[in-house]
């Protein structure tokens, strides 16, 4: 990404920066959420020693991971943490590799866009109906359903940036996967 950014045309550079910034914000949110999950569990464990409870642990812990995952998706993919099988791509020449990468990225974009639409319908349904998430404190279910919508939108945007870069810059390099 850092090397590619230099060769990006200006317009692509702007889109890419925009996408990157949003991904970072979303990932920061996820980091805060995981920390809150951690503290909630610890608080719950401590309270239980005194036969008390937060009565919120189930809502926060159960939904926390799902929300954090969706908010981390695009950023994780951007930083190369999303696994893929690269045996075949390693065996072929640059030209074929470029075509394969183009097909993969286009297919990924199409799939993510398609999935986003149906994830959005879930959100729309709970929003219009006013369905409730029923925990000790009930709240509108769309508070939860909005996160997959945001997360997949960011993922879609990021994959589009990749696709545009492939088409207009021809860049197929990806940073090494790090764990």
């Amino acid at each position: 990404m850092k090397t590619a950014a230099k060769t990006d045309p200006k317009w692509l550079h702007v889109i890419s920066r925009f996408s990157h910034g949003l991904n970072l914000i979303a990932a920061t949110f996820a980091a805060v959420l995981v920390t809150v999950m951690l503290l909630t569990i610890v608080l719950e464990v401590v309270l239980r020693l005194f036969s008390r409870s937060t009565y919120m642990a189930d809502a926060i812990v159960a939904n926390g991971l799902s929300i954090a995952t969706f908010m981390t998706l695009a950023w994780a993919m951007e930083s190369g943490s999303m696994i893929r099988v690269n045996i075949v791509q390693q065996m072929v020449n640059d030209r074929i590799r470029y075509v394969m990468e183009l097909i993969c990225t286009a297919a990924a974009a199409a799939l993510t866009g398609w999935l986003w639409y149906y994830i959005y319908l879930i959100f729309e349904r709970s929003f219009n109906r006013g369905s409730l998430a029923t925990y000790m404190i009930s709240f509108p279910k769309w508070y939860l359903d909005i996160f997959p919508v945001i997360g997949l939108a960011l993922l879609f945007l990021h994959i589009c940036v990749r696709l545009l870069r492939l088409i207009f810059v021809g860049d197929t390099t990806e940073r090494a996967l790090e764990i």
Binding site: R48, S51, S53, Y55, A57, D58, T134, Y135, M136, S138
Partner: peptide, 17 residues
Amino acid sequence: DSISTRTMANAGCAPLQ
């Protein structure tokens, strides 16, 4: 669930989730 938790708490138990 929340109803059973509340009921048991009202009855003097220490319900756990």
